[in-house]
Amino acid sequence: MVKKRRSQLISTKVIRAMIGVLFVLSLLSLLFSTYFIISAKENGEEISPNSQSKGVASIVIQPPQEQNAVSGLQKGE
């Protein structure tokens, strides 16, 4: 009878321990899910999708010697 009672007590303790582990694991899982979602948002994966488009402005300013050459050519013409 005492042996049976002791066995029941041990079994209850094991079940409690298992439930405790399950509880902690669930909590950790929830925390990690929340963490990954928040960090994904911060990295712009969800909040800030973006797009880009380019344009180029360009110019060539002639040095004085080339200006003279052009002027000379124009005069010659």
Binding site: N50, G55, A57, I59, V60, Q62, P63
Partner: peptide, 25 residues
């Protein structure tokens, strides 16, 4: 606006503009 005192180099100068768009997604 180019002042007449500017001394040109004869080389092409480029400015590349990147226009970005952001949304709430």
């Amino acid at each position: 606006n180019i002042s007449s005192s500017t001394i040109g180099t004869g080389t092409r100068k480029n400015a590349t503009f990147t226009f970005g768009a952001l949304s709430s997604g």
